[in-house]
Design a protein around this nucleic acid. Structure first.
Length: 294
DNA sequence: AGGACCCATAAC
DNA sequence: GTTATGGGT
C-alpha cells in the first residue's frame, strides 16, 4: 500500500557555502580556485571550504593551505574572521539566515546545519496539484533536475543530453492526474522537484547563493539524492530506482552510517553495500543493534 | 596541530 | 531529568 511513499521530502545543500559567502563579498574571487581557511599560523591555516575549481586540482577539506598551494599554485585564500583568538563564523550564520528566510516562503524548513535544510513538501505538492490543469509538466520547468535511474536503458557517461533524455523518458511515463484517482508518488516527487527548482531560483536571485538538492520520500534518501549531482543541480530519487542505486552503494555513504555504527554492521553481518543490508529483516537488525537503531 | 559547535541517541 | 558518546558540518 505504498508504505514509504507518503511524503515528499527535500534536502537543500548550499554548494561550498563559506566560499560563496566570501565570493559575494569579494567578487574577484568568483569563478576561481578558492578556499576558505582558518588560523593562519600553522601551515598557512586549515581549509574548511573549497570551490569546485579548486577541487578539480585535488584540493580538499581538512588540508593545510601550504599543502593545497603546491597542488594549485594560484589558489585564492579567504580567511575566516577571528575574534578573541577564535574563528568567528557569525558572518556565515547571517548568510544562512538569509537563505532560510527565502526558502521559508515555499515550505516549512528544518534547518539541519549552517548550510543544509530539510523540508516536507507533501502539502505544498498537494496544493500545487490542485492548480495544475491536466498534470502535464514542461521539461523546461525542470532545467536543473536529474531523475536518478533514467534513462533506464543507456549506460553512457553523464552529459547534459543524457540528463534531458532521462527527464523526457520519466515525464512521458508519468500517469495523468485525473481527478478522483489517487495521485501517483512519482508525480508527487516531480511536482516537488518543480517547487524546489523555483525555491533554488529564488534563493539565487535574492541572495546570489547557489545550492543543490535531493527530492525523495524521506530524509535519508533526499540527502543521498542531493549528493548525486553537484553543484547547482537537483536530483529526484524515485523509490523504484533505489535497489539499483543501493546494489553498489557502500554502507558508509548513508547518513549516520559513516562511522562506527556502519563499521559494526559490516563486521556483524558481513555485508559491504546497502543492497545486501536490505536483505536483513527488521527483527534481525534489532537483535544486533538494539530497538531504536535496528 | 583539528577545533568548535550542533544534534540525536544511549546510558545513568 | 542529566551526562556521555557518536556523527556530522
Amino acid at each position: 500500500m505504498d508504505y514509504g511513499k507518503e511524503r515528499v521530502v527535500a534536502l537543500v545543500d548550499m554548494d561550498c557555502f563559506y566560499v560563496q559567502v566570501e565570493q559575494r563579498l569579494n567578487p574577484e574571487l568568483k569563478n576561481k580556485p578558492c578556499v576558505v581557511a582558518q588560523y593562519k599560523t600553522w601551515k598557512g591555516g586549515g581549509i574548511i571550504a573549497v570551490s569546485y575549481e579548486a577541487r578539480a586540482h585535488g584540493v580538499g577539506r581538512n588540508m593545510w593551505v601550504d599543502d593545497a598551494k603546491t597542488l594549485c599554485p594560484d589558489l585564492q585564500v579567504a580567511r575566516v574572521r577571528e575574534s578573541h583568538g577564535k574563528a568567528d563564523l557569525t558572518h556565515y550564520r547571517d548568510a544562512s539566515v538569509e537563505v532560510i528566510h527565502v526558502m521559508s516562503r515555499f515550505a516549512v524548513i528544518e534547518r539541519a546545519s549552517i548550510d543544509e535544510a530539510y523540508m516536507d513538501l507533501t502539502s505544498a505538492v498537494q496544493q500545487r496539484l490542485k492548480t495544475m490543469a491536466g498534470g502535464q509538466i514542461d521539461p523546461k520547468l525542470l532545467k536543473t533536475t536529474y531523475i536518478q535511474g533514467y534513462p533506464r536503458s543507456s549506460t553512457e557517461l553523464e552529459t547534459s543530453e543524457h540528463r534531458s533524455r532521462g527527464l523526457q523518458e520519466w515525464l512521458t511515463s508519468l500517469p495523468h492526474n485525473s481527478s478522483g484517482d489517487k495521485i501517483s508518488p512519482d508525480l508527487q516527487l516531480t511536482v516537488g522537484a518543480l517547487i524546489v527548482e523555483e525555491m533554488r531560483a529564488a534563493v539565487e536571485k535574492d541572495t546570489s547563493f547557489r545550492c543543490s538538492a535531493g527530492i525523495s520520500h524521506n530524509k535519508v534518501l533526499a540527502k543521498l539524492a542531493c549528493g548525486l549531482n553537484k553543484p547547482n543541480r537537483q536530483t529526484v530519487l524515485p523509490l523504484d530506482s533505489v535497489p539499483e542505486l543501493f546494489s553498489s552503494l557502500p554502507i558508509s555513504k548513508i547518513r549516520n552510517l559513516g562511522g562506527k555504527l556502519g563499521a559494526s554492521i559490516t563486521e556483524a553481518l558481513g555485508v559491504e553495500n546497502m543492497g545486501d543490508l536490505t536483505q536483513f529483516s527488521k527483527a534481525v537488525l534489532e537483535q544486533h543493534f538494539g530497538d531504536k537503531t535496528g
